[in-house]
Design a binder for these strands. Structure first.
Lengths: 113, 113
DNA sequence: GTCATGCTTAGCCATAATGCTAACTATACG
DNA sequence: CGTATAGTTAGCATTATGGCTAAGCATGAC
């Protein structure tokens, strides 16, 4: 559970930055080189490199180097742990809503007495 | 879009901490007091307070004070922007997959010639 | 070989995040 | 009133984050 937790933390942290989300959106369209990813951000290369390594450590992208060009590509299944967490949260929440409904029903019955 | 972006950043950042996720899971079961939320974390009250205010600023919880007791409760719809973002990403990704399929089809046709 | 291109590394700076203690406020209890 | 309880505020230390410049190192083009 601890490792799963770490994965989630890395994932959420990677997604918490707008620049990184923009990069992901760009990569969702097609793989791209580092320089091409940097251009629209208005940031310097080393800064973008850092963002890319955060994304890579979170498992959201993979990169391969061909000659002097590094190509970055999305890893779409990387978002799965997040979906799972969301669904779990929803499940617990729904259960709570049911209990709350039951509570309201009971209370209303009591009031009628 | 900028504001929407900020919301998402706050949301993802709030969720990037295991302690805060644990607090949310706890709150999904039932609302709770600050002290009760602090107990299982092993953290001091001021520290937990800070986590709570991060969660509150992200819109994930609401708190109300009754006498000297502050009660925290989940705001389940707060996760909606995240779901939306997820779906958007998936949509773009799927479109890309389609294009890739089309590309593969074309390539195979070419090969047959 | 020389030079431009594309990335990488090292190191600096400012700010934000996460934890703490200590001291304070405000409510409840007896 | 006096004391315990529940939160709050202020301030500090450490580490992480996000940006930069400057310099280095491959690789491709000429």
């Amino acid at each position: 559970m601890a490792k799963h937790d770490r994965d989630l933390s890395l994932l959420f942290h990677a997604l918490s930055d707008p620049t990184r989300r923009a990069i992901l959106t760009r990569l969702a369209e097609r793989p791209a080189r580092v320089t091409d990813l940097a251009a629209p951000t208005g940031l310097r290369l080393p800064t973008v490199m850092r963002h890319l390594s955060v994304l890579e450590e979170a498992g959201l992208i993979t990169t391969t180097k061909d000659g002097r060009i590094r190509t970055c590509a999305l890893v779409p299944e990387a978002l799965d742990p997040m979906r799972t967490w969301l669904e779990q949260q929803r499940a617990i929440w729904d259960a709570r809503l049911d209990r709350f409904d039951a509570f309201v029903m009971r209370t209303m019955k009591e009031d009628k007495k």
